[in-house]
Write a protein that binds this DNA or RNA. Structure first.
Lengths: 340, 340
DNA sequence: ACCTTACCAGAAAGCGCTTTCTGAAAGCGC
DNA sequence: GCGCTTTCAGAAAGCGCTTTCTGGTAAGGT
């Protein structure tokens, strides 16, 4: 099942067989058909490793690194990447880091070893000096050797092409919309502060409120998961002092947990308390009440990031940034505050 | 950044450098540390392709083929696969076929070319003679060449190791539970009949009802998606004749769409009509009412299928089947029929 | 002191391809 | 008909590794 076998079967040299199969150079018609027939007969499949090794020509795989495939946010983006990749006959190597920085770096290294054509990093980077340096040390040689890198929502310190959701502006706009509904007392359910996405959304929300002269209110931190949101909401309700009339969870996934916690505590949404999230993952539309959020076009973001990576490298070494606007979508989970 | 460069830097032969780095054979301590140091200094990363080519030793990637990553069912299984793969330092190549049989075969072929250590097929096969033959033609040479294949919920015609959810038994048990609630008038929202999963669940549900002397009722077909479920439910409601008191959607994803359709039509769940799904994808717990369903341990199924593939090939050439029981979970979406 | 083992570094042969490079045959103008 | 370019098949040189095989040196046995 090697090229040599095919060549022998067809009675030509391996060189000719290679050319006939790949169409690199003109080959006499009769020889070409003979080679093709022999390949079919033998069920020949070229060894991609040998091909990658012999031809400087990059191979047909791109690496995709995300925090967790089972998180709908990443799944949505990954889906867009795959669709675009399929169109170009590229294989996607998808890795979940389970939010461990070291594993992320290990994956980049494996992808480098595979000579992946491009490496896509999805999801916030870690705001950690040592980690950033290590990541840079992996990525720089890769890029210098002709590798492509593109990311979505990363730290700017990584000087690579970026698809950047407008977290800050989106959160600010959401805040204004919530204020417009009449809310004055807020609380925020936030994730790990070392994730840039969290920092940006928090800052944006604060800004939006500040424009109306309102403070951020209580900020409760939780894990970046449904359970994190659930726990954070419980802690919020348990805290003493007046309750906010509106809660913002920095991601929809957390908001889903929060909604459950509110319901369990007998707090009606939106009658007693309004709740909003961020991302617009598919499921939040199905909740009752459906969740207000800032919608991000996840699939499109996936398509954009792979397109960015595959595009001819910019002559100027400057990294490109594609900004993605979030759209505030007010649904049933937000309403005017009680007694207004 | 080649091994040769490292060897030269360390003042040893490439052979020694290789051995020092991989620990294949004993190498004098001072040489080994010198080689390691040189590798670090140069930022050496072995070329995985060259390694794969030189050593018959299989490489460190496994292929995972599913219909759609953004479907929570597949995402859940994929997540389990990734966790297990990460523990063994394996890279997962994940491909979405978007339910196109031809694309599935193309991916298997690419994975073969990559000499993936194992190929995992997730999700129903297509009941189509030509397709089955083509798939067999890809898989057989792969297995004969030492490749491993494992699948979850496939057609039995594929003679490979299988993780098999007990679709039939689970659906039957669900039917009995629903009958026990008092229901006598049913309807089923079903997916493409060429998917074996659909066929099995449908058959199981029919069996369960038959045990109580009840017929299946109206069967409405839709796509295997939320929209498919939505549309099927609308068509069901639009049909003339008496309405069923209980609807079974063959997957949770379809049930989610159905729930939305029922709500839109002003049908209260479960007061006017009960609704149940299958799979227990994470989101259905969050709905109101939370969906009754047959729970499948998705992550575990992912772990099992990769373990199956990686296990030493059975001496007997028989393919192994791991059966996964579904557990009927009755939640708020099902209740006694109206007026009982 | 001599010969056998044991150990370990280096030389060299591939792994399965692609891609120059080489050269034979054919096509062209004069 | 002769020298020219053009076309295209085959020989051969790698791509970057691993792994036998070979051989030199040190240790051990008699």
């Amino acid at each position: 099942m090697t090229l040599d076998a095919v060549a022998r079967e067809a009675g030509v040299s391996p060189a000719t067989a290679s050319r006939a199969l790949n169409g690199t150079t003109r080959v006499r018609d009769d020889l070409r058909t003979r080679v093709r027939a022999a390949a079919d007969l033998l069920g020949y499949i070229p060894n991609a490793h040998a091909q990658a090794l012999a031809s400087a020509e990059g191979n047909r795989t791109v690496g995709l690194i995300c925090h967790d495939v089972s998180d709908p946010y990443f799944a949505g983006i990954a889906s867009g990447v795959m669709r675009a990749a399929a169109e170009q006959d590229l294989l996607v190597m998808l890795a979940s880091t389970f939010r461990e920085p070291s594993r992320e770096i290990a994956y980049v290294s494996m992808l480098r070893a595979q000579r992946a054509r491009a490496i896509l990093l999805i999801g916030s980077g870690f705001q950690d000096r040592a980690w950033e340096r290590a990541m840079d040390a992996e990525l720089n040689p890769y890029v210098r050797a002709g590798g492509r890198v593109a990311v979505v929502s990363r730290h700017r310190s990584l000087r690579v092409d970026t698809v950047q959701p407008e977290n800050r502006a989106g959160a600010a706009e959401l805040a204004r919309a919530l204020v417009a509904l009449g809310h004055r007392e807020f609380a925020v359910l936030t994730g790990p502060p070392e994730l840039t996405t969290v920092a940006d959304r928090l800052a944006g929300f604060r800004e939006g409120l500040a424009g109306a002269g309102i403070g951020l209110g209580r900020v409760v931190r939780g894990a970046f998961t449904r359970e994190g949101g659930h726990l954070a909401a419980r802690r919020l309700l348990a805290a003493e002092g007046p309750r906010p009339t509106c809660v913002f969870a920095v991601t929809d996934v957390m908001a889903v947990g929060a909604l459950a916690a509110l319901r369990e505590a007998g707090v009606r949404v939106p009658e007693d308390m309004s709740l909003a999230g961020f991302d617009d993952i598919p499921l939040v539309r199905e909740l009752s009440p459906p969740l207000s959020t800032v919608a991000l076009p996840l699939t499109e973001m996936g398509e954009r990031v792979i397109a960015l990576a595959l595009r001819a490298p910019s002559a100027a070494a400057r990294s490109r940034v594609v900004r993605i606007d979030g759209e505030v979508v007010l649904r049933g989970s937000t309403a005017a505050p009680p007694g207004s």
